[in-house]
């Protein structure tokens, strides 16, 4: 090669490098780019704002309440209405913004404190489902993708177990679990978490199997990298995106399902701890819905808005992480 040619190449390479630096910003991982796309999506912003407010309320709840949410009869000094021979606590007014429930507790305070319970149930239940599901799905996916004949057997055993869980209607499964374990807050979280295990397991397994045929897996194999290492540091990071999206969406369903269990009377039996699902049930069954519909309405609206927030954010994340939708 002549000196001239060498110089030319060096120059070209410098130019190419400069161009590359300017066309793409530096140090951007897949996640950071996804985050950027999420931020540009209006529904994500709405979802995130809802969740932001929700989390803020959940965290600061006890400092925001005007009355003790557990104290029965705070409203009595302000007078009761009597309808059809039944004492009814007054509805929303300047003193009690959302009215009083059937035991005379301040609804506004209970809604605020209930946010924390609701968030806790959602997060813990999803975490339980995510952990168990990823464990089962990850092992099954890695075994199927890389483990040869024996791997397929392992995958088969694990997946038939998951199929069994899937075969049962999820709420029914949760109800039987709660009945088995005695109702308490922890039981609700375990039950709701448990029914989301199959979703996570199947999702991660599918993604991992798809990834295990990817060329970079073959390339890593050709360099003698151990199978376990390939599964953990190559296949798993590439398969986790759909699972995380699903986790966001599951947070929404977990909140709804936990509320559903409470609604059916299988929630936290200690009603001094406010929880939206229990409040909804109280509003429907323990007070006069025809005279005080707001007692059921407010918890329901709370649940709907929160679930909506998680769903919007989850959908936006799905869009951001889906390579097919990338521009």
């Amino acid at each position: 090669m002549t000196a001239l040619a060498r110089k030319k190449i060096a120059k070209l390479e410098r130019l190419a490098e400069l161009a590359a630096v300017h066309s793409k910003e530096q140090g951007e991982s897949l996640w950071r780019e996804a985050l950027k796309r999420v931020r540009r999506n209006p529904s994500a912003i709405v979802g995130a704002s809802i969740l932001g407010v929700f989390i803020l309320i959940a965290v600061l709840g006890p400092f925001l309440v005007p009355y003790d949410p557990g104290q029965i009869g705070v409203g009595i000094p302000f007078g009761l209405e009597v309808k059809e021979g039944q004492a009814i606590y007054p509805g929303p007014n300047s003193e009690f913004w959302l009215g009083l429930d059937h035991q005379g507790r301040d609804m506004f305070s209970r809604m605020i404190v209930g946010a924390r319970q609701t968030l806790l149930v959602g997060v813990v239940a999803t975490a339980i489902g995510l952990t168990l599901g990823c464990l089962i799905g990850g092992i099954a996916g890695a075994a199927y993708g890389l483990g040869g004949k024996r791997g397929r057997t392992i995958d088969n055993v694990l997946m038939r177990f998951i199929d069994m869980l899937l075969a049962m209607p999820s709420l029914l499964l949760a109800i039987s679990l709660v009945a088995l374990l005695r109702p308490s807050l922890m039981t609700v979280m375990i039950a709701v978490g448990f029914i989301s295990v199959p979703i996570f397991a199947r999702l991660l397994r599918g993604a991992m199997i798809a990834q295990s045929n990817a060329e970079y897996v073959v390339a890593a194999t050709s360099l003698g990298v151990h199978k376990r290492k390939i599964a953990l540091s190559h296949i798993l990071p590439n398969s986790i995106a759909p699972v995380l999206v699903q986790a966001t969406l599951t947070l929404a369903t977990a909140i709804i399902e936990a509320a559903g269990l409470s609604f059916l009377g299988l929630g936290n039996p200690d009603s001094s701890q406010a929880e939206w699902g229990t409040m909804l049930a109280d509003g429907l069954f323990n007070s006069r819905f025809d005279y005080a519909p707001h007692l059921a309405l407010f918890p329901a609206i709370g649940i709907i808005i929160t679930a909506l927030g998680f769903t919007l954010l989850g959908e936006a994340m799905r869009e951001a992480l889906d390579p097919k939708l990338r521009k």
Binding site: S29, A214, E215, Y216, V218, A219, S222, G224, S233, N238
Partner: peptide, 22 residues
């Protein structure tokens, strides 16, 4: 043990042969 140490391979498509998230 041989792969990578004694025999190594270079693939056709460098983009898909590299792990995109690592």
């Amino acid at each position: 043990d041989l792969r990578g140490r004694e025999i190594a391979m270079i693939f056709q498509d460098p983009l898909s042969s590299l792990n995109p998230v690592v």
